[in-house]
Each structure stands twice: as C-alpha cells, then as structure tokens.
Amino acid sequence: MSAPAAPRTPHGWPLWEVFVRARRGLSHQHVGSLHAPDGEMALRNARDVYTRRGEGVSLWVVPSSAILASSPDEQDPFFDPALDKAYRHPTFYEVPEGVEHL
C-alpha cells in the first residue's frame, strides 16, 4: 500500500479524479481527472468537461491524493492466490445430464 501522495500541484489547483454514472443501474466509472480549487468546483468542472454529450446522470469527484492504490510490485501476493480457486466458479462443478435450473 502506498500512503496518499501530497497534493501534486504546488502552484496550481489540486487534482481530482472523476467518476461518471452513465445511466441508472450502472456503477460510477473512472473517466479521467481535472483541476479545481475545491470539491464544489470540481463537480461543476467535471460536468462541463466529461458530460458535454449527455454521458452521465451522476458524478463523483475524489481528491487524487485521497486514493490508496495497490502497488504493481505487490500484484503477485495480492492477486495470484485467487487464481487457483477454481471451485469459486460454477463451471467447476459437474451437473448430471438432464438436470435443469441449476
């Protein structure tokens, strides 16, 4: 894990990550970032920059410095152990011929 970085812009506005919900029923998806002096302006800028063509019905903005990310160096211990547990997937199991709705 890496600690949140200090705000990266010493002489500008902080960086914000933008997430857009394209329509109801879908989760918010990361679309990019932008600069804004504060959260309220970040939301408004996100609306103008990332939803000019009706791409969204809801927006999140998160200070980039607030995001904790897993490190690619730890990719193996983090994610490899999940790869050998085939029994978590339904295709692991044999279903006798003729049995339905299972």
Partner: peptide, 23 residues
C-alpha cells in the same frame, strides 16, 4: 473549439499520471 479544450484536458490528465503536473 470547446471540444478542443476538453481534449487538451483529457490529454493533460493522461500526462499527469506519469508524475508531472499540468502547471
């Protein structure tokens, strides 16, 4: 012209993932 401003921002935002800032 507004789209072009937007495209500039998408690209600066991509560059910023490499550890530089837009300023």
């Amino acid at each position: 012209v507004q789209d072009e401003a937007g495209h500039g921002l998408y690209l600066y935002s991509a560059a910023e993932t490499l550890g530089v800032d837009r300023e």
